[in-house]
Structures are given as structure tokens and as C-alpha cells.
């Protein structure tokens, strides 16, 4: 091994998969041998079986659907509002000076701490779940988008001006397209965070969703179901991340060059 030397694509996949295998192997060794009490940690096979029961008999698929819907709903609302504000803050320094201190403060407010307040304001319906995700992702998005847009190479800006670009044209034709791949990466990252917020939102005051199933299972000491729920979240996260990455690559082929 040498620092920063890339690994062959085949070897890369093999290495990635082998850690999952190792993980399951350690888990199996700990549980099947009786080393860990099944009350605290179910074995992989029990987890798969209860997963099947959850999906086939207890309508867990609709819980998964609810959770996905909430994440996407809250995230899309946050992204749609954060994009224009972030771009404006990145482009116009007075706008940045106006919002930036508050946004910097607001992004450290823990979204989960708002849950009691949000239940008070919005009840325990969908609006409350969406609001948790919105609070958790909106401020992060705004700030990161503003920084990305503000970091546009100044020599490109100057070149655009000597080509006769107007101020609006500069934003539309230089700042936004130049920042787009990095903004897309920001969206991908924050979507990952939104997944952690949704589960927290569903642990309290929900009647459906993966988080709700997990709280129910806790009451029954069904660790196999809890683990299944957690793994489902992980898998959905992994798949959505891969899809996002693939989309970014096909939208911005130029950003992949010369890496």
C-alpha cells in the first residue's frame, strides 16, 4: 500500500463487500455461540425471520413507505427553499451579512430538541415529522450552498465580465453552474442526515414508520425486529446515496474529469 494510490475497481468492490461479511461473521459468532444473551442481541437468522414476519404479516412495508415519504418530503421542502436563499447569500454579500449569523446559530439547534415544541404547534401528524426534518436540514443546506457559491473562482468571474456578462447573467451562467456539482454533493450528504432525524421524529408521537416499529419492538424486547429496522434504514440510505452519486455523475460529467 502507498498513500493516495487508487485501488482497482474489482478489488474495491471485493474489499467493500468483505467488511460486510466480516461484520456479519462477528455478529454470528457472538450470538450463535450463546456468548451474548438473545434478549440483548438477536442472531442474524432470527433477525431475517422476524424481518420476513414484519414484511409479510405486519405490514412493515407501509411503515418503510411512510418513512421514505417523510424524509423525501421534508428534505425536498428544505432543499427548494435553501437553494435560492443559499445562492443569493453566496452571490450578494449584504444578503449574506444579514442572514449568515442567524443561520449559523440556527444550524446548531438540535432538530430533535424541537420535537416537544413541534408536537405542541403541529400536533403529532405529518406536519410535525416534516418540520423536524426541515429544521435539521434547511439551515445546514443554506450555509453550505452559500459557501460553495461564494467560493466561485474569481478569475472565472472576471473572465465572464470581460465577455460582457451582466450581474444576473453572472449568477445564472457562472455562479450556479460552477457550484452545481458541489451543491449536489451537499444535498447528498444532508439527505443522509435527514434519515437520522426522521427516526428520532418517529420515536416520539408517531403511529407509523420505521421509528415507530422500533419503539413498539422495544416494548416487546424484540431485538431481532429492532435490528431489522435499523438495517433497513441503513440499506435504504446506502441505495439512495448510490443513486444520488450516479445522478451527480451523469448530470455533471465535467466535474469528474481530471480527478
Amino acid at each position: 500500500m502507498k498513500p493516495l494510490v487508487p485501488v482497482a475497481p474489482g478489488a474495491r468492490i471485493a474489499l467493500g463487500v468483505s467488511f460486510f461479511v466480516l461484520f456479519v461473521a462477528v455478529w454470528s459468532a457472538a450470538t450463535f455461540s450463546g456468548f451474548v444473551n438473545p434478549l440483548f442481541l438477536a442472531d442474524p437468522w432470527a433477525m431475517v425471520k422476524s424481518g420476513y414476519t414484519l414484511l409479510a404479516e405486519m405490514g412493515f412495508a407501509s411503515d418503510v413507505g411512510m418513512t421514505v415519504w417523510r424524509v423525501l418530503g421534508g428534505f425536498v421542502i428544505a432543499a427548494v427553499l435553501a437553494l435560492p436563499l443559499g445562492v443569493l447569500m453566496g452571490a450578494y454579500k449584504p444578503i449574506e451579512a444579514f442572514f449568515e449569523p442567524f443561520v449559523s446559530f440556527a444550524r446548531y439547534l438540535p432538530a430533535s430538541a424541537f420535537i416537544p415544541l413541534l408536537i405542541l404547534w403541529a400536533g403529532i401528524g405529518e406536519a410535525q415529522k416534516l418540520a423536524v426534518i426541515f429544521i435539521g436540514s434547511f439551515f445546514q443546506l443554506v450555509l453550505m450552498i452559500a459557501v460553495t457559491v461564494g467560493n466561485t473562482r474569481r478569475d472565472l468571474v472576471e473572465a465572464a465580465y470581460t465577455l460582457g456578462v451582466s450581474d444576473r447573467g453572472l449568477i445564472r451562467r457562472v455562479l450556479i453552474p460552477g457550484a452545481a456539482p458541489e451543491i449536489a454533493e451537499t444535498l447528498r450528504m444532508v439527505l443522509g442526515w435527514a434519515w437520522t432525524y426522521v427516526i428520532v421524529a418517529e420515536l416520539i408521537g408517531a403511529s407509523s414508520g420505521i421509528g415507530h416499529m422500533i419503539t413498539d419492538s422495544q416494548a416487546l424486547l424484540a431485538t431481532d425486529q429492532i435490528i431489522f429496522g435499523i438495517i433497513v434504514i441503513g440499506l435504504i440510505g446506502l441505495v439512495s446515496d448510490l443513486m444520488f452519486k450516479a445522478a451527480n455523475r451523469s448530470f455533471f460529467p465535467w466535474a469528474q474529469l481530471g480527478r
Binding site: 465577455l163 451582466s166 457562472v174 453552474p177 460552477g178 455533471f252 474529469l257
Partner: peptide
Amino acid sequence: GMVFQSYTLFPWLTVLDNVCFGLRE
């Protein structure tokens, strides 16, 4: 029109669209 010492082509545009930039504006 200006040509800079640093490479200032817009990396998200093809060579052709870079040359079209001012014309499109």
C-alpha cells in the same frame, strides 16, 4: 476581450460553448 495567465475557461462548458459564451450573452 481579455486572455488571462491562469486558465479561465468555464470547466462546465465544452470548448464550443466556451467560445459561444459572450455571443450567447
